[in-house]
Design a protein around this nucleic acid. Structure first.
Lengths: 127, 127
DNA sequence: GCTTGCCTTGACGCCGACGACAAGGTTTAG
DNA sequence: CTAAACCTTGTCGTCGGCGTCAAGGCAAGC
């Protein structure tokens, strides 16, 4: 499988796959003419990477999951390192959610205050 | 008031104030030697900017609030343009919170699955 | 042979809010 | 006289995950 085919099957671009390889996440054989050749297993790897990135992981966070897959596991999640990252990410997400909740609350306060002020001004202007 | 003093009083840096000025948010007189001179009103402007940026606004989002303050209002929130931005930002925050909730849910699922798998493996290895 | 369509490496662009540094001018205190 | 401590403009660097050329090689069909 050449890079274009893998890219299409994984729903991404050749550029992206080379980028992953440059960062040590994806591996490829080389044909005589220098083309990258991938086996089926890499498709699963790339899909794992994509799924995690979509969820907000960084490339570094993804490494343990890829290693876990390469170690022969059916899921990238089941290795200790992956679990560590999962826990950390959940905690991060929780923190952001809390923060955004507070932000939302504050913005809501500013909004209602502004509306109230507008009512007042409007009433005054009608006198 | 020179730029260093304003920066300190607003809890930021001279570089940041020049950046705001370059983007049309903050204004300054110039002394004979070319130094920027700020009046007290600019302190409130800068604080408004900082408060909004801290909450996740971009510089463009902040403009209406600054204009509102310059128009003589006691709060930057009370003008129609500000209210529009406030509503939009609240909607954005809500969307992100929803998305993160889904992400959290998925990650939690992956984690429990991984733990369950580990239990299984552990049990097998003890046989 | 020529075009088409793959592939290769390399390098710059992006976005946003600045930080950091360069190279210089000014004023003040010792 | 000089050092310190301000100020000025200008430019490059940062972070991440790529997109987008550029310039070229290789394979295959007509």
């Amino acid at each position: 499988m050449l890079i274009g085919e893998l890219a299409e099957r994984a729903g991404t671009s050749p550029r992206t796959l080379r980028y992953y390889e440059a960062h040590g996440l994806v591996r490829a054989q080389r044909s005589a003419n220098g083309y990258r050749i991938y086996d089926e297993a890499e498709l699963r790897v790339v899909r794992e990477i994509r799924a995690l990135l979509d969820v907000g992981f960084g490339l570094d966070d993804v490494r343990p999951f890829v290693a876990c897959l390469r170690a022969g596991n059916s899921s990238g999640d089941v290795c200790p390192d992956s679990v560590v990252v999962l826990r950390r990410k959940i905690a991060e997400v929780d923190a952001v959610i809390d923060r955004l909740g507070a932000v939302r609350h504050q913005l809501h306060g500013q909004l209602t205050h502004a509306i109230a002020h507008r009512e007042k001004t409007c009433l005054r202007s009608r006198k």
